[in-house]
Protein backbone atom coordinates (compact mmCIF):
# COMPACT_ATOMS: atom_id res chain seq x y z
CA UNK A 1 0.00 0.00 0.00
CA UNK A 2 1.08 3.62 -0.39
CA UNK A 3 0.23 6.45 2.00
CA UNK A 4 -1.64 6.01 5.25
CA UNK A 5 -5.03 4.41 5.90
CA UNK A 6 -6.67 5.91 8.99
CA UNK A 7 -9.38 4.21 11.02
CA UNK A 8 -11.19 5.87 13.91
CA UNK A 9 -12.60 3.27 16.31
CA UNK A 10 -15.17 4.45 18.80
CA UNK A 11 -17.55 2.98 21.31
CA UNK A 12 -18.41 2.77 24.96
CA UNK A 13 -16.23 1.43 27.78
CA UNK A 14 -16.74 -2.31 28.25
CA UNK A 15 -17.59 -3.10 24.60
CA UNK A 16 -14.19 -4.61 23.78
CA UNK A 17 -12.83 -1.80 21.63
CA UNK A 18 -9.24 -2.49 22.74
CA UNK A 19 -9.54 -6.13 21.65
CA UNK A 20 -10.89 -5.03 18.29
CA UNK A 21 -7.93 -2.71 17.82
CA UNK A 22 -5.51 -5.46 18.93
CA UNK A 23 -6.99 -7.81 16.33
CA UNK A 24 -6.49 -5.36 13.48
CA UNK A 25 -3.05 -4.48 14.87
CA UNK A 26 -1.95 -8.10 14.77
CA UNK A 27 -3.39 -8.59 11.30
CA UNK A 28 -1.59 -5.53 9.94
CA UNK A 29 1.75 -6.50 11.50
CA UNK A 30 1.38 -10.07 10.20
CA UNK A 31 0.76 -8.60 6.74
CA UNK A 32 4.02 -6.66 7.03
CA UNK A 33 2.39 -3.24 7.44
CA UNK A 34 3.42 -0.46 9.81
CA UNK A 35 0.87 0.47 12.48
CA UNK A 36 0.59 3.27 14.99
CA UNK A 37 -2.28 3.96 17.39
CA UNK A 38 -3.41 6.67 19.78
CA UNK A 39 -5.72 5.16 22.35
CA UNK A 40 -8.08 6.55 24.94
CA UNK A 41 -7.80 4.08 27.79
CA UNK A 42 -9.68 6.28 30.15
CA UNK A 43 -10.25 5.06 33.63
CA UNK A 44 -11.63 1.70 34.44
CA UNK A 45 -15.30 2.63 34.57
CA UNK A 46 -17.79 1.19 32.15
CA UNK A 47 -20.00 3.24 29.86
CA UNK A 48 -17.61 6.09 29.14
CA UNK A 49 -16.91 7.25 25.60
CA UNK A 50 -13.68 5.72 24.24
CA UNK A 51 -11.74 5.78 20.99
CA UNK A 52 -8.68 4.46 19.21
CA UNK A 53 -6.88 6.29 16.41
CA UNK A 54 -5.65 3.38 14.27
CA UNK A 55 -3.20 4.21 11.50
CA UNK A 56 -1.73 1.85 8.91
CA UNK A 57 1.01 2.65 6.38
CA UNK A 58 3.19 5.70 7.00
CA UNK A 59 1.81 7.36 10.11
CA UNK A 60 4.01 9.79 12.05
CA UNK A 61 1.69 11.21 14.73
CA UNK A 62 -0.40 8.83 16.86
CA UNK A 63 -3.44 11.03 16.20
CA UNK A 64 -5.43 11.27 12.99
CA UNK A 65 -5.89 14.87 11.88
CA UNK A 66 -9.47 16.17 11.61
CA UNK A 67 -11.09 15.20 8.34
CA UNK A 68 -8.51 12.55 7.49
CA UNK A 69 -9.98 9.26 8.74
CA UNK A 70 -10.73 6.94 5.82
CA UNK A 71 -12.99 4.82 7.96
CA UNK A 72 -14.83 4.90 11.23
CA UNK A 73 -15.75 1.69 13.06
CA UNK A 74 -18.34 2.33 15.76
CA UNK A 75 -19.51 -0.28 18.24
CA UNK A 76 -22.13 2.15 19.49
CA UNK A 77 -24.07 4.25 17.01
CA UNK A 78 -24.21 7.65 18.72
CA UNK A 79 -20.45 7.67 19.24
CA UNK A 80 -20.03 8.14 15.45
CA UNK A 81 -21.26 11.71 15.89
CA UNK A 82 -19.06 12.36 18.91
CA UNK A 83 -15.96 11.83 16.75
CA UNK A 84 -17.33 12.89 13.36
CA UNK A 85 -14.69 15.64 12.99
CA UNK A 86 -12.14 12.94 12.20
CA UNK A 87 -13.99 11.39 9.23
CA UNK A 88 -13.08 12.60 5.77
CA UNK A 89 -15.86 13.58 3.39
CA UNK A 90 -17.09 10.39 1.76
CA UNK A 91 -15.26 8.18 4.27
CA UNK A 92 -16.70 4.78 5.19
CA UNK A 93 -18.68 4.33 8.42
CA UNK A 94 -19.05 0.79 9.74
CA UNK A 95 -21.47 1.05 12.64
CA UNK A 96 -23.52 -1.08 14.95
CA UNK A 97 -27.15 -0.03 15.33
CA UNK A 98 -26.84 -0.43 19.11
CA UNK A 99 -27.43 2.78 21.03
CA UNK A 100 -26.54 2.96 24.70
CA UNK A 101 -28.21 6.11 25.96
CA UNK A 102 -26.42 8.04 28.68
CA UNK A 103 -28.10 8.29 32.08
CA UNK A 104 -28.73 11.98 31.57
CA UNK A 105 -30.68 11.22 28.39
CA UNK A 106 -32.70 8.56 30.23
CA UNK A 107 -33.47 11.07 32.95
CA UNK A 108 -34.74 13.61 30.40
CA UNK A 109 -36.98 10.97 28.81
CA UNK A 110 -38.31 9.80 32.19
CA UNK A 111 -39.00 13.24 33.62
CA UNK A 112 -40.90 14.59 30.60
CA UNK A 113 -44.43 13.76 31.72
CA UNK A 114 -45.81 14.62 28.29
CA UNK A 115 -43.81 11.72 26.82
CA UNK A 116 -42.65 13.98 23.99
CA UNK A 117 -38.94 13.68 24.82
CA UNK A 118 -37.67 10.59 23.03
CA UNK A 119 -34.35 8.86 22.89
CA UNK A 120 -32.08 9.70 19.98
CA UNK A 121 -32.87 7.30 17.13
CA UNK A 122 -30.65 5.52 14.66
CA UNK A 123 -32.43 7.38 11.82
CA UNK A 124 -31.52 10.74 13.37
CA UNK A 125 -27.89 9.66 13.68
CA UNK A 126 -27.68 8.39 10.10
CA UNK A 127 -29.28 11.60 8.78
CA UNK A 128 -26.52 13.60 10.45
CA UNK A 129 -23.80 11.26 9.19
CA UNK A 130 -25.08 11.74 5.66
CA UNK A 131 -23.95 15.37 5.84
CA UNK A 132 -20.41 13.94 5.72
CA UNK A 133 -20.68 10.66 3.80
CA UNK A 134 -23.03 8.30 1.97
CA UNK A 135 -20.82 5.27 2.57
CA UNK A 136 -22.55 4.04 5.70
CA UNK A 137 -22.70 0.38 6.67
CA UNK A 138 -25.34 0.12 9.37
CA UNK A 139 -25.37 -3.32 10.94
CA UNK A 140 -27.67 -5.08 13.34
CA UNK A 141 -24.49 -6.47 14.83
CA UNK A 142 -26.21 -8.18 17.76
CA UNK A 143 -28.69 -9.95 15.48
CA UNK A 144 -25.83 -11.10 13.21
CA UNK A 145 -23.82 -12.21 16.24
CA UNK A 146 -26.78 -14.23 17.49
CA UNK A 147 -27.10 -15.78 14.02
CA UNK A 148 -23.43 -16.71 14.30
CA UNK A 149 -24.25 -18.44 17.57
CA UNK A 150 -22.80 -16.12 20.22
CA UNK A 151 -23.99 -12.67 21.29
CA UNK A 152 -20.44 -11.73 22.16
CA UNK A 153 -19.14 -11.90 18.58
CA UNK A 154 -20.38 -8.44 17.56
CA UNK A 155 -16.79 -7.23 17.18
CA UNK A 156 -16.07 -9.89 14.57
CA UNK A 157 -19.18 -8.82 12.66
CA UNK A 158 -17.88 -5.26 12.53
CA UNK A 159 -14.36 -6.31 11.52
CA UNK A 160 -15.78 -8.52 8.77
CA UNK A 161 -17.87 -5.64 7.45
CA UNK A 162 -14.81 -3.36 7.38
CA UNK A 163 -13.09 -5.86 5.09
CA UNK A 164 -15.83 -5.34 2.49
CA UNK A 165 -14.43 -1.86 1.88
CA UNK A 166 -12.42 -2.07 -1.38
CA UNK A 167 -9.44 0.06 -0.21
CA UNK A 168 -9.07 -1.74 3.12
CA UNK A 169 -5.30 -2.29 3.27
CA UNK A 170 -5.05 -5.54 5.24
CA UNK A 171 -5.77 -8.80 3.36
CA UNK A 172 -8.99 -10.50 4.47
CA UNK A 173 -7.34 -13.79 5.38
CA UNK A 174 -4.79 -12.07 7.64
CA UNK A 175 -7.61 -10.38 9.52
CA UNK A 176 -9.56 -13.62 9.84
CA UNK A 177 -6.47 -15.35 11.22
CA UNK A 178 -5.93 -12.55 13.75
CA UNK A 179 -9.57 -12.68 14.86
CA UNK A 180 -9.39 -16.41 15.41
CA UNK A 181 -6.02 -16.16 17.17
CA UNK A 182 -7.16 -13.59 19.70
CA UNK A 183 -10.73 -14.61 20.62
CA UNK A 184 -11.35 -17.21 23.36
CA UNK A 185 -10.88 -20.74 22.03
CA UNK A 186 -14.44 -21.88 22.67
CA UNK A 187 -15.81 -19.07 20.52
CA UNK A 188 -13.62 -19.58 17.44
CA UNK A 189 -16.35 -21.13 15.28
CA UNK A 190 -18.93 -18.53 16.20
CA UNK A 191 -16.42 -15.73 15.59
CA UNK A 192 -15.54 -17.16 12.20
CA UNK A 193 -19.23 -17.24 11.22
CA UNK A 194 -19.72 -13.73 12.62
CA UNK A 195 -16.78 -12.48 10.54
CA UNK A 196 -18.33 -13.95 7.35
CA UNK A 197 -21.77 -12.56 8.13
CA UNK A 198 -20.21 -9.12 8.65
CA UNK A 199 -18.21 -9.38 5.43
CA UNK A 200 -21.33 -10.30 3.51
CA UNK A 201 -23.46 -7.56 5.08
CA UNK A 202 -20.75 -4.97 4.49
CA UNK A 203 -20.45 -5.97 0.86
CA UNK A 204 -24.19 -5.59 0.37
CA UNK A 205 -24.19 -2.06 1.85
CA UNK A 206 -21.14 -0.86 -0.06
CA UNK A 207 -22.17 -2.62 -3.26
CA UNK A 208 -18.88 -4.50 -3.54
Amino acid sequence: MSGTFNIMFCGVGGQGLMLLSSILGKAAVDAGLEVMTGEQHGLSQRQGSIYVHFRIGEPISPLIAYGKADMMIAMEASETLRYIEYLKDGGVVIMSNRIMPSVSETEKVALDKTGKTKYLTIEQIVDKLKMVTDNIVLLDSLELALQAGNAKTENSVLVGAALACPDFPIPTEKVREAVLALVPEKTIDANSRAFDLGLEAGGTCLGT
Binding site: Q47, L81, S104, L120
Partner: peptide
Protein backbone atom coordinates in the same frame (compact mmCIF):
# COMPACT_ATOMS: atom_id res chain seq x y z
CA UNK B 1 -14.62 24.43 9.08
CA UNK B 2 -14.56 20.70 9.84
CA UNK B 3 -14.69 21.36 13.59
CA UNK B 4 -17.56 23.80 13.21
CA UNK B 5 -19.60 21.32 11.17
CA UNK B 6 -18.81 18.51 13.62
CA UNK B 7 -19.97 20.62 16.55
CA UNK B 8 -23.31 21.20 14.83
CA UNK B 9 -23.73 17.52 13.97
CA UNK B 10 -22.99 16.45 17.54
CA UNK B 11 -25.48 18.88 19.07
CA UNK B 12 -28.10 16.11 19.32
CA UNK B 13 -25.87 14.08 21.65
CA UNK B 14 -26.17 14.26 25.39
CA UNK B 15 -22.97 14.19 27.36
CA UNK B 16 -21.62 10.79 28.33
CA UNK B 17 -20.43 11.87 31.76
CA UNK B 18 -18.31 9.46 33.82
CA UNK B 19 -20.51 7.15 35.81
CA UNK B 20 -20.32 4.29 38.29
CA UNK B 21 -20.41 0.88 36.57
CA UNK B 22 -23.49 -1.33 36.83
Amino acid sequence: AILTRAEELAEVLSNRVPIFCP
